[in-house]
Design a binder for these strands. Sequence first.
DNA 1: GACAACCCTCGTACAGTGTGCGAGAGGATT
DNA 2: AATCCTCTCGCACACTGTACGAGGGTTGTC
Lengths: 233, 233
Amino acid sequence: MTGKAYSSVWLREPRKATSPGRSREEIVRAALDLLDEEGIDGLSMRKLGAKLSAGATSLYWYVANKDELLELAYDATWGAITAPDPDEVGWREAASVMAHSVRQVMLRHPWIASLLGRLPALGPNALRVADRMRQTFKRAGFTGFEIDYAVATFTAYVYGMTLPEIAWNATMAGHDYDADAMREQVIRATADFPDMRERIDMDTYEDPRVMRAVAFDFGLVSVLDGLERRLVT
Amino acid sequence: MTGKAYSSVWLREPRKATSPGRSREEIVRAALDLLDEEGIDGLSMRKLGAKLSAGATSLYWYVANKDELLELAYDATWGAITAPDPDEVGWREAASVMAHSVRQVMLRHPWIASLLGRLPALGPNALRVADRMRQTFKRAGFTGFEIDYAVATFTAYVYGMTLPEIAWNATMAGHDYDADAMREQVIRATADFPDMRERIDMDTYEDPRVMRAVAFDFGLVSVLDGLERRLVT
DNA sequence: GACAACCCTCGTACAGTGTGCGAGAGGATT
DNA sequence: AATCCTCTCGCACACTGTACGAGGGTTGTC
């Protein structure tokens, strides 16, 4: 009956803050630094301890385990997202700003990608954003469950669009590759797929960063249009 | 000039198959078993070696490193995706079938979620699906870069929708939690967000599996509608 | 002052991880 | 018979998360 409860950090009382030298905030901040600099694999308890001039296991006083720490860092990044009031700027504008903001934050903290499919986002910052999204699509005219469907569709698009972008950046990073040689390899790999070949021939002379930004806007408009269409029928 | 080339398995010549007892295919198959049974953390080279009655390091003859092995397993799962010919069933039907198929495959192999943001999908199976998607949206009437934008939007939706589903399943699995106690905790956590509260009060008496399927269809129709709208203007 | 109760730190240890290296077995080729 | 090529694997290294328990420091109570 009283089984082991669900173990997210957010669903249990935090240790009451007595504000000594070290604190949970300080630890999370240092963890964020490490994550941003070296990625998800760059964060280890020993390195984090060293960065704080502490023993690795000292951190376990503030945090039950590494996953909890990641949950805290994860949520901290959601704090940077700008979510305008839809009653002031209109729902489409609010949604658009949020979408771009989420994308930017994700690109700036690529390690988030590794957590998306593993940890739930239940922290206060994530909830704040989620709440704003609900508000936005309610304002748009959705009711009942459809509010959640719309929010889910919207966030799905933003996540799904940004994630492969991160994966691509990650594989490119640190490899000073020979562009021509790689192009040749890709062409060989896609030899059997005429449609793919056509695409590869196309995008050679475009800046991929710009391309992706354009693609993002194209898709965003499409998704918002598609959602809006649910309202009129 | 000739820097270290990009290191995906797919972009280098495979070791020529001499078909001994052990083979790459066999190894990948065993890895898939392990991944499906125990998840991404359940796969270790030593365990995999034991499963094949081999030493852990023997596998490195067939595979350069663990990431390559994951790329191979990753691509193998794309083989299970059904992608109908859009010229036969129409582009909307083709897209819809692909979307559901991708979702099903991802839910059946949840460890894929951990790889989405980390490894590129460049294997033959992934390319086959990508090619079909291009074909589908070309058939729909898109031209030039917009074909790729449409494909990206579409896949983004499918990924983004399924990923949180997997994350949720993962956190629930193995924790025989007290539903009421957890509900109470969630309510406390969302106390500051009236819109969220409203939602939580709502979905208590619905089967979450059904809800998610409905949400997926709702979003899918929205996204396809939104894309279709790009064609008429 | 003495003693106890706490908050907090950290050294040690354990069971694991990926993988580089190099010795060797066995078959094929010259 | 000698040489080479394909393949296996034990060992070792550096590293991981974290359980445990011994201690130090501060605070509170008699």
